[in-house]
Amino acid sequence: MSTVQQASLLGGRALREALRTPDSSIPTLLIPLFFLVVNVGQAGKIFPSSSTSFLEGQSYAAFQLPSSLLLAASFGTAALYLVEDIEGGYFDKLRAAPVSRSALVLGRLMAEAAKSVVITAILVVLALPFGISIASGPLGFLLLLVLTSLWGVVFAGFMQLIALKTRSAAATNSGGLVFFPLLFLTPNFVPRELLTRPMELAATFNPVTYVMEALRSLILRDLAWAPLARGFAVLAVLGAVMLALNVRLIRSYD
């Protein structure tokens, strides 16, 4: 059996696990929606769509939506389930099987990608009453789902590293908080060129910026290949690094 087949079996089990704990998905939907409502409520009047050129004729909620989508994809619940497997001994049972070590980490990441696609789609639908539309059309919507789920995989990979290293739910949970500084060091409220110089510098070095700008371009404009290429390139590099580190760690796991 190939590594991909083994990872698919383990991914299927991880999805079943998620379906059987629907409670864990509720915060993943509600908290990003909460941030969307609060951020639009606080800054929406400052940026009316009629006189704010960077909104491209849409509401401020459309500008804010990528932050909420990225937040929803950054809960990293896969890593918390992994810690449960480690603490409960099931992870050792899987390790005692003749399964590729890569499949052990890939399975959960594949499930995380599928979960992110579903949650992103639900969030976009829930955001429609805010006057949001996906300007890049159905293909743009598809790319938006792919970009967000790839970010979900990257972040889940990062959380899995903490889980495998510390084997502690508390440490893994705390590790997830890293996303908040990353989210706020982006052009979260205004485009990059309107940020103060120090914030602009920080945003330029923050990889989340490029994913956010790619998502924003899909929502506000027709397909714009330059921001999309930057977004996908950042995700490809981060994804490769996370995967390599995960595989390295699982191979030396005692």
Partner: peptide
């Protein structure tokens, strides 16, 4: 292999 503390997935 069956280790200490039956390693099973409760879900």
């Amino acid at each position: 292999v069956a280790l200490q503390e039956a390693g099973l997935d409760p879900r």
